[in-house]
């Protein structure tokens, strides 16, 4: 049986695929008029659009600027929907708390920011510590915010060592194994992740989402790769 709002959900999905923030915001507004619950709009309208873009990105049929535009559109929709969610006391269930940042000495944030955007779109609470973050800041933030996951990005082989420092800092702070540390970035490999005893590694932003989702649902001690 077709849903009465199917057409609207399809338009929402398309606004994300098109990377059209204005259209996404307008559709979010329209959802109130149509009596679509904000959570429904997110889960059935906008998030599927983000998933679609992510899948196409993995298949190399859409590219980074498209993904960024999709994320902007997602943000525009969320800016409309979130205040109402709060008002209604029906906040989107948090899929998990994630802290992100680039390793000490590294100022390259495109990949990390993209991971953050996608995680947010998928219902995670993301705290982005920015670039060039000392390892103890990751540990402190993880403790303060009761984070589930810490993600450390590095673009340079010289700054990859900063990822190891974060694993150690989290350990010294006594947060492991409850807080998982995941790593990513162009020079990072699974072997490196194993070597520094990280909990997971993903090749790209979409896989990072799957990785984090997997870690949230798993208590396994083995390293995860997505």
């Amino acid at each position: 049986m077709g849903c009465v709002h199917e057409e609207t959900f399809r338009a929402m999905r398309q606004s994300i695929i098109d990377g059209a923030p204005e259209a996404a915001a307008t559709l979010a507004q329209k959802s109130f008029v149509l009596g679509i619950a904000p959570l429904e709009a997110i889960d059935q309208g906008f998030v599927p659009g983000m998933n679609d873009v992510g899948e196409q990105f993995t298949l190399r049929t859409v590219f980074l600027p498209d993904m960024m535009a999709a994320a902007e559109a997602m943000k525009a929709a969320m800016n409309v929907l979130e205040p109402v969610l709060k008002q209604q006391g029906t906040e989107r269930p948090c899929a998990g708390k994630v802290i992100l940042g680039t390793a000490k000495g590294d100022i390259h944030e495109i990949g990390k920011t993209l991971v953050g955007t996608l995680l947010t779109a998928h219902g995670f609470q993301v705290h982005d510590l920015g670039v060039d973050v000392p390892s103890d800041h990751f540990a402190a933030a993880a403790a303060d915010l009761a984070a589930d996951i810490v993600g450390v990005s590095a673009l340079l082989t010289t700054t990859m060592r900063g990822q190891k420092a974060v694993v150690e800092a989290i350990e010294h702070a006594g947060l492991r194994p409850r807080v998982k540390v995941i790593v990513g970035g162009a020079p990072v490999t699974r072997r490196w992740a194993e070597e520094i005893r990280a909990d997971g590694y993903a090749k790209d932003a979409m896989r990072a989402v799957a990785l984090v989702q997997g870690l949230m649902g798993s208590h396994s001690d083995t390293i995860r790769v997505s």
Partner: peptide, 29 residues
């Protein structure tokens, strides 16, 4: 994030097929 980036990158850059290896994915663990 710029609109013009999205509007122009396809004409500015050639996107090779999977014959050409770029990025880190190739180091498939």
């Amino acid at each position: 994030r710029l609109k013009e980036t999205r509007a122009l990158f396809r004409s500015e850059q050639y996107f090779p097929s999977s014959v050409i290896q770029r990025g880190s994915e190739a180091r498939a663990d």
